[in-house]
C-alpha cells in the first residue's frame, strides 16, 4: 500500500455527545496534499458525518481555520508533508463555542465586526456630487491602510489571542485592525464614531501586546501593530481632552 498518514480529529455533536472525543483516520499521503485535502478525503471516502467549513481552497475565503497541532492555521494552506510521518491533531479554533466537530460559532466575532463599523463613513455635508467623480488617493494614502485591508476574517488571530481566550468581551485583533483600516483611510470621517468602542477598556486597552495575532495571521495584516497604533492615537486624544478640554471636537 502507498504511504499513509494519520489525522486525529476533534469530534463533538453537542446535542448528542456529553463531551468531545478524538477520532483517528488514516489517509493516503500525497506530497501535494494540504490538510484540507485529507479532510475532504475523509468526508468523501471514510466518514460523511465529519463537519467542517471550507470554500475557496486557496487562502482567500477565510473559512477553513483550524487548530493544527495546537496552532491556528488555514487548513487549505498547510501541507501534509510538513508533518509527515507524524500524526496530525486537528481541532476547531479555540476560544469559540463548538457548533459541531470542527465548526465553531462565529456570532461573537460577527457582532464585533458590525460594531466596529468597518465601512467608509462620510460627513453628510462633505459628500461631493456624483458627477464630480471619485475621491482620489495618493499611493502614500493607500499604503497607510492597505495591509489592514487584506484581512479575510479567518479569525485565526482570535484563536491565537490569550487575552480573548480569558475574556471574550475584548473586541479582538481583526475587528480593531479593520477599524484602523477605515480610520486611516483619507476618505473616511468615521474615526470619532468608532473611537467610543476602540478607546474603551474592551477595545484596545485589554490588549497586552502578546503579538501572537500577528504571528499567526496568514495575510500579514499585523493586527498587533494596528492595535498599538490605535493606542498611541487614543492616548494623544486623551491628553488633548485632559490638557485642552475647551479644544474638544464636536
Amino acid at each position: 500500500m502507498a504511504e499513509t498518514m494519520k489525522l486525529e480529529i476533534f469530534r463533538y455533536h453537542p446535542e448528542k455527545d456529553n463531551e468531545p472525543t478524538f477520532q483517528t483516520y488514516e489517509v493516503p499521503f500525497l506530497e501535494d496534499w494540504v490538510i484540507l485535502d485529507a479532510i475532504n478525503y475523509i468526508k468523501d471516502e471514510i466518514d460523511g458525518t465529519l463537519s467542517y467549513r471550507w470554500s475557496c481552497q486557496m487562502g482567500v475565503c477565510g473559512s477553513c481555520g483550524m487548530m493544527i497541532n495546537g496552532v491556528p492555521k488555514l487548513s487549505c494552506a498547510v501541507f501534509l508533508k510538513d508533518y509527515y510521518p507524524d500524526k496530525i491533531r486537528v481541532e476547531p479554533l479555540t476560544g469559540f463555542p463548538v457548533e459541531r466537530d470542527l465548526i465553531f460559532q462565529m456570532d461573537d466575532f460577527m457582532t464585533k465586526l458590525t460594531e466596529i463599523q468597518p465601512y467608509i463613513i462620510r460627513n453628510k455635508d462633505e459628500e461631493k456630487p456624483l458627477d464630480e467623480g471619485e475621491y482620489l488617493q495618493t499611493p502614500a494614502e493607500l499604503a497607510r491602510f492597505k495591509p489592514y485591508s487584506m484581512c479575510i476574517n479567518c479569525m485565526l488571530c482570535y484563536a491565537a489571542c490569550p487575552v480573548y481566550a480569558l475574556d471574550s468581551t475584548f473586541i479582538g485583533p481583526a475587528a480593531i485592525a479593520l477599524g484602523q483600516r477605515y480610520n486611516m483611510d483619507s476618505r473616511d470621517h468615521g474615526r470619532d464614531a468608532r473611537q467610543e468602542l476602540i478607546a474603551s477598556h474592551e477595545g484596545i486597552w485589554e490588549c497586552t501586546f502578546v503579538g501572537e495575532c500577528s504571528a499567526v495571521c496568514p495575510k500579514d495584516v499585523d493586527p498587533a501593530a494596528a492595535i498599538q497604533r490605535a493606542k498611541v492615537s487614543s492616548t494623544i486624544d486623551w491628553f488633548k481632552d485632559v490638557l485642552i478640554p475647551w479644544g474638544k471636537k464636536k
Binding site: A199, S200, H201, E202, W205, T235, D237
Partner: peptide, 12 residues
C-alpha cells in the same frame, strides 16, 4: 461604553 483612563498608565 465608558471612556477609559488607561492612556495615562499606558503612556507611562
Amino acid at each position: 461604553m465608558a471612556k477609559s483612563n488607561e492612556p495615562i498608565w499606558w503612556s507611562l
